[in-house]
């Protein structure tokens, strides 16, 4: 069953990533681009979790956690930059 389900899921996530990239290119404003980047990192994380299931390996967890943390920090830093023109308060 997984032989059918997992490729289908991968295709859906790939489509999601493409849509995020389109929004990232299109903009039109900076907050839109930052939001697209944030969603992109969450979707990348979903892809990695799915890959971990496909390859039956638990070692992908650390990668996913790192992407989650880096994505959040990036979004907050960019948000701060948009708010104050400065990252550190």
């Amino acid at each position: 069953m997984f032989a059918y389900v997992i490729p289908l899921c991968l295709a859906m996530l790939a489509l999601a990533v493409v849509l995020n990239l389109l929004r990232l290119i299109e903009g039109p404003d900076m907050p839109d681009r930052v939001l697209a980047l944030d969603t992109l990192s969450i979707n990348a994380l979903a892809l990695i979790v799915l890959l971990g299931i496909w390859l039956r390996s638990g070692t992908f967890f650390e990668v996913a956690l790192l992407i989650a943390v880096m994505g959040f920090v990036t979004t907050v830093a960019l948000g701060k930059h948009l708010l104050h023109g400065d990252i550190i308060d």
Binding site: L8, M12, A16
Partner: peptide, 13 residues
Amino acid sequence: GCSFALIGAIGLY
């Protein structure tokens, strides 16, 4: 889960 992720991306687009 994948459908929701896709719907989120569709909404974003």
